[in-house]
Design a protein around this nucleic acid. Structure first.
Length: 442
DNA sequence: GCATGATCATGC
DNA sequence: GCATGATCATGC
């Protein structure tokens, strides 16, 4: 049975939690066999609560330990060669209740009252190991939502609430926000029931507040991470911080930038050079921007020709023919990517042929366009099953197409037809990117 | 100039 | 060794 501790004291609960460090639940407590067998992946948290803390959680609205105001979370980590561990996935905090959130304000919000103080236990995720045998490999973490990150999180919460107020709960995506994501929740798929929202007749997918995976990485590696460079803890929005940083560099030539940062483009084929410059501009000469990593923001460089069109379409991760035919849209890598927030950093060749920095902006794909991307993905899935050599071309959609992306000509992978064919990826059309740049670059 | 195909450079 | 962001190459 669980050791003695005081359920009303944060410190006491925290100390008790430390007794799990380095051990699995089954090493510390006897867990009846029928429970071990029936436990699924989501159950470790409730098993820890029931068997180790000998505690019944309160209702859904409040924290697990109401007297202490403490919410208990367990979450998986994966081994990582450099950082030792990284987050397996986002941490789901609590469901977004569309009917309720519009009546709330931040200070009295369900999110803050339930998750304002969390005790997070990190276990090593091993797919085939029963949850009760998974070891808690890190010290437990007490996370206060009102610490350094709160201005960003509050702003995120308000962004989500605002969208529901506008009757756009169905348009929510993770890319709307910085650290606090509105992740979809539930099995997904075409049969998943939609939820009602107060200001639109349109049904919306069930979504929950979550800490993004990359944000969890920073919690895990907290003491290792570099100091923030954008000053968001003072309440500045990420948009403003980014545009202020880039402002000073507008229209500077590549030569000016590289001499300013003391980095030279040595070889003609230095593909990451523009990206390096972008990071230097943002990080005041440094080489990392922790806030961008933490927010899971995808930085992409865009190089325009003198006429203002991107030189290239924009590539996304590749897919395997045998996988895509079994996947659903919302489990696909392409879906995950295009729900993200992007930082587009734009360079352009001027009339004299000089490459110049033109500006940068944050962007996430509008709902309508995500529907079109979904259509292209569904079409790709269907056609892969029939003939993997005939996939959506650039002329077939204003937004996305499918094209090879391989390491070499021999880099071929199996198709459902039993043949091997060159590896493929999704791309956003250069003409679509042009439209985005035209609309967003001031 | 564009669609399509092919592959490079880099970081983990 | 490999995935990913990025770019080059070719033919119409």
């Amino acid at each position: 049975m669980g050791a003695i501790y005081d359920k009303t004291s944060v410190e006491s609960i925290f100390q008790h939690a430390k007794g799990l460090t380095g051990k699995s639940l089954a090493e510390v407590e006897f867990i009846p066999k029928e429970i071990v067998n029936s436990a699924n992946k989501g159950d470790l948290g409730s098993l820890v609560e029931a068997f180790y803390f000998v505690h019944k959680p309160g209702n859904d609205k409040g924290p697990d330990f109401p007297e202490a105001g403490l919410e208990l979370k367990t979450t998986g980590v994966l081994p990582h060669p450099k950082a030792k561990y990284k987050a397996k996935e986002r941490l789901v905090l609590t469901m977004i209740n569309y009917e309720e959130i519009v009546k709330e304000d931040w200070d009295s919000s369900t999110l803050l009252s339930k998750c304002g103080l969390m005790l997070i236990l990190f276990y090593l995720y091993e797919k085939n190991r029963p949850v009760v045998d998974r070891r808690f490999v890190l010290e437990p973490l007490l996370y206060r939502m009102l610490g350094d990150d709160w201005p960003v999180i509050k702003r995120d919460w308000e962004t989500i609430r605002q969208k529901v107020l506008e009757g756009k709960a169905h348009e929510l995506s993770e890319g709307d926000t910085i650290y606090l994501g509105a992740c979809r929740k539930g099995a997904g798929g075409p049969n998943e029931p939609l939820r009602q929202q107060p200001f639109s007749a349109e049904g919306a997918k069930a979504r929950a507040f979550s800490f993004k995976t990359e944000f969890m990485n920073h919690l895990i590696q907290g003491h290792l991470t570099l100091p923030p460079v954008l000053g968001l803890s003072q309440g500045l929005s990420l948009e403003d911080a980014v545009s202020m940083r880039f402002q000073a560099f507008t229209n500077k030539s590549l030569a000016e930038l590289s001499s300013q940062f003391g980095i030279e483009k040595i070889s003609k084929n230095q593909k990451g050079f523009y990206r390096q410059l972008a990071v230097r501009m943002l990080a005041k000469g440094g080489n990392s921007v922790p806030e961008l990593d933490k927010a899971g923001i995808e930085m992409k460089t865009i190089r325009l020709t003198a006429s203002g069109k991107p030189r290239e379409s924009m590539s996304f991760p590749g897919f395997k023919f045998l996988d895509i035919v079994k996947e659903s849209w919302e489990d696909s890598a392409f879906f995950e990517k295009i729900e993200k927030k992007f930082l587009f950093v734009v360079f352009q060749i001027d009339e004299e042929g000089v490459d110049r920095f033109k500006g940068a902006f944050l962007w996430n794909m509008p709902y309508e366009d995500r529907l079109e991307a979904k259509r292209v993905w569904e079409d790709t899935k269907r056609r892969t099953a029939e003939d993997a050599t005939d996939l959506p071309r650039i002329s077939e959609s204003p937004i996305a197409h499918v094209r090879p992306k391989a390491r070499a000509g021999e880099d071929k992978i199996p198709t459902p037809q039993g043949t091997n064919h060159v590896r493929q990826a999704f791309w956003l059309n250069a003409s679509y990117i042009k439209g985005v740049v035209d609309q967003n670059l001031v």
